[in-house]
Design a protein around this nucleic acid. Sequence first.
DNA 1: GCCGTTTTCGGCCCGACTGTTTTCAGTCG
Length: 581
Amino acid sequence: MNKQEIAATLEAMADLMELSEENPFRARSFRAGARALDGITGDLGDLIAGGRLREVKGIGSALEEVIADLWREGRSARHEELKSKVPPGLLEMLQVQGLGPKRARVLHQKLGICDLASLKAACKAGKVAAVSGFGEKSQEKILAGITYLGQVSGRFLFSEAREAARPLLDAVRAAPGVVRAELAGSLRRRRETVKDIDIVVSSRQPAAAMERFVAAAGAGAEVLARGETKTSVRLPRGIQADLRVVADAEYPFALLYFTGSMEHNTAMRGRAKARGFKLNEYGLFRVDAARPSEEGEPIPGLSEEEIFRALGLDPIPPELRENLGEIDLAEAHKLPDLVEVKDLRGIVHVHSVASDGRNTLEQLVEAARARGLEYLALSDHSQSAGYAGGLKEDRVIQQHQEVDRLNARLKGFRIFKGIESDIRADGSLDYPPEVLDRFDFVIASVHSAFSLSEDEQTRRVLKAMQDPHCTILGHPTGRLLLQREAFPLRMEEILRAAGDLGVIVEINANPLRLDLDWRWGKFAREAKVRTCISPDAHSIQDFDYHEIGVGIARKGGFPAREVVNTYAAGDFEKALSSRRA
DNA sequence: GCCGTTTTCGGCCCGACTGTTTTCAGTCG
């Protein structure tokens, strides 16, 4: 098994432990172990062989043994034993919202329910409502949860979620009594995909804010919960949106709490506790050591930044609040500088209607200018991308004439002539050299043969980068998980080669972003890789993906030595040409 | 099961909401 598979197995084992009513803290340890495994840099095999796995915080002797077994044998006796105690279908039942291990177990014992299918049948037959501890409402909720599971995979693209969130946030901000309101959660952290929309608001009239929120969600939305401080709705397109209302004095604490990942928050609370505080979404309290059970003295008037400082930390930007090492960096005053929206000068990797984009070149230029950008690096699909209306040579020439006309007319804005050239299965680019010579830059991307082995895929990409025309390596770790465009690649090798060759590597909407940042960050810095933040935009709306790169790429070298689209147009052009020189 | 500027034993983040109860357990984030 590889590292990811082992982590997933540990999570499954934790579920199984909860289903079989083992010590809940043991289950928690397995979950922590899965996360710890995820955060390991370097080769897991080396750690295991060297007997150094136990040095990883959160992994002790029991987990070490299980992980080593899974790594070497692909199985663990402990896992087999757990599985033998629990019917396999019970695991999938935990995915149903509102159904946890305790109640899943009750249903199994009382009704013999052992999977989603039998659960659905029992609900329809009204048997679930008759079980003690359940009722009509529970039964309905479970049924709705099963239906929902079948409809939605559960995660949404950043741009889609942000678009859905905007009217909700606007409506809440306009509600009477509202002081402050902001997006929180994974949207504020700018994850490429998010599970739900979180909005935090401070208001003197909570009910009014809830009212506006529900109204803005529209008639097609389903209200999932509505209390005094929290309202949850499911929007018609399936995204859940949560609104939390707090008093204004509590706002920074609520924003902090609802922005961080669960792991980050847990770590922050643990840190607060270790320092004699209690941290929750309402405040930071100084705990009296003599009377630890009492509420404690709240520390008034802190901003979000000051909360970090009170805990001995530099303020951690939302994009980093994932508990992947940022707390240690903040303590050591070593947080990296992040690229901000205002740092971006140009937009790279954009498709127009000439291939499979939805906007004309003029529209794209206007949208880029409206965002204050100074240049646009145009890259329609190349000729072998028949599925996407890729450009044959004659259309390339035609497009270049159009770009020349526009550039002559535009003041203070520049369009660069590029192409997203398919990397063929054999690693070659799909135009002859004399055509590739016509472009200011060439993005080489994989769009086919995703099922090649990691070894074959790596060799293929390495070969494409050898071509002197290759300026930029397009979305090297797969474009989007949701579009199933992902492929295995040995990233360290790729980054090293890119550094040596002067090839710019795209960072764009990418489910492996954190791997790039944290796990390979040190390596990439050593390899001196240049990157560009790319939205791989197929429409003006996709420009939002540009902002996913914000907070990722580091100024002056983490993970990249340079982020080329933070440069002015002239320097960007030099960065492009430095490859061919 | 893991961990230790409280501890090698005894803790382990914490609060809201729901549905089912008549004071609370389960679930979620």
